[in-house]
Design a protein around this nucleic acid. Structure first.
Lengths: 199, 199
DNA sequence: CCCCAAACTTGATGTAGGATAAGAAATTAA
DNA sequence: TTAATTTCTTATCCTACATCAAGTTTGGGG
């Protein structure tokens, strides 16, 4: 099982003995999804946190006009879940879909709670990654209130450098909050602007 | 000292003995700000979490055109801080200002860390409120991507019912992400719409 | 109580980005 | 390889909201 990555990403924030590492790993379930598989659909209760060991997932909502809005991407090494549903155990509004064939490690809510009890350090670990996540959503909200679509695109590029060229452009558009048509126009404009600056 | 409110809001999530409560309270510093006082300015390092026991604060950023964007309000019973700066201890981008004469309890970062050590339950408490805060910023981001200004105004009303009539309208406009001019027009439209529905 | 700054409103005009449509290019499944 | 589907682009027109300007109302400090 490829658990190096998850252990490494955890021990960047807390120290664990070998037994603790093994105990933690024993709580995980590996699972494989194929491109376009849905890991979670809106209306369902989210029962797991998902850690991506290979591939890429996307979390998105569908508004009442049928348009999709991407909340987050989860490439290799990232966690994803419908936090609202996971916390409340009520039906959520998030869809999570595999953008390519993807391997994940599942940590169920009940096992996560058990983990907090068995190894209190994990309370700290999840507090820290939740804090970091909170900060980045605050920043993204401010960006959406104050930046143009083009500036938000640059922020996307900084946040997900590995995805710039691998992701369908319509997914990027749905993340920065514009239509695919406008995104296309915007890119053309950016090219001509770039050329002007070269002269 | 008016610490009933903060103890009550904490014991909604974790259980504390009387000694633990007293220890916690001993770590807090009360402070009073006057209307228009700045609790924190962008560029400063945030050294405290602030709990409002009376009055109201606002957290906002100023963009490169000089426009203000409200990240959050903190009426009585709410916490506020520049999370980014508090976590990293680097200069932040948030301003926190008193909208009226306001009483707060300060919890310094170093004391908060001491608290995690002395009473590990607090690790859980702050994890939970951070989780809840994360969920609401996620929702607000989705709302900004998918809803009209009018729908976002309704969400503001649900989130901060006590502020609808007490807050200057330009503050509400800066929260939902429109200009005061447009907010004014929007309200007039909502009135005439409401009248039509009555007929 | 009054005055002045701040907040609010209203109108005229401008613009970033959306809606629609339709064809071109790229992927996928078979 | 090809047919079918999805994605991307381009053009035209449209709308939600911004900008600018000017006047009105409000309310908090002296």
């Amino acid at each position: 099982m490829s658990t190096n990555l998850i252990i490494e990403s955890i021990t960047r924030h807390i120290r664990l003995s070998n037994e603790e590492k093994e105990h933690f790993i024993s709580l995980l379930q590996p699972k494989i999804y194929k491109r376009k598989d849905f890991i979670l659909e809106d209306g369902q209760v989210c029962k797991y946190s998902y850690f991506v060991t290979a591939g890429c997932l996307r979390g998105f909502t569908v508004d009442h006009n049928g348009f999709e809005h991407v909340l987050n991407f989860a490439p290799t090494g990232w966690w994803i879940a419908d936090m609202y549903s996971l916390l409340t155990q009520k039906p959520g509004i998030l869809n999570i879909e595999a953008l390519e064939n993807t391997e994940v490690l599942l940590l169920s809510k009940s096992r996560q709670e058990k983990l907090y009890h068995d190894i209190p350090q994990f309370e700290r670990f999840f507090r820290i990654i939740t804090e970091n996540s909170l900060v980045s959503y605050q920043q993204r909200l401010i960006d959406n209130l104050s930046l143009t679509a083009e500036e938000r695109y640059h922020n996307f590029c900084r946040r997900y450098p590995s995805l710039i060229n691998t992701l369908p452009k319509k997914q990027i558009a749905a993340y920065i909050g514009v239509t695919p048509e406008f995104f296309s126009r915007m890119q053309r404009q950016m090219l001509t602007k770039g050329k002007k600056q070269q002269d």
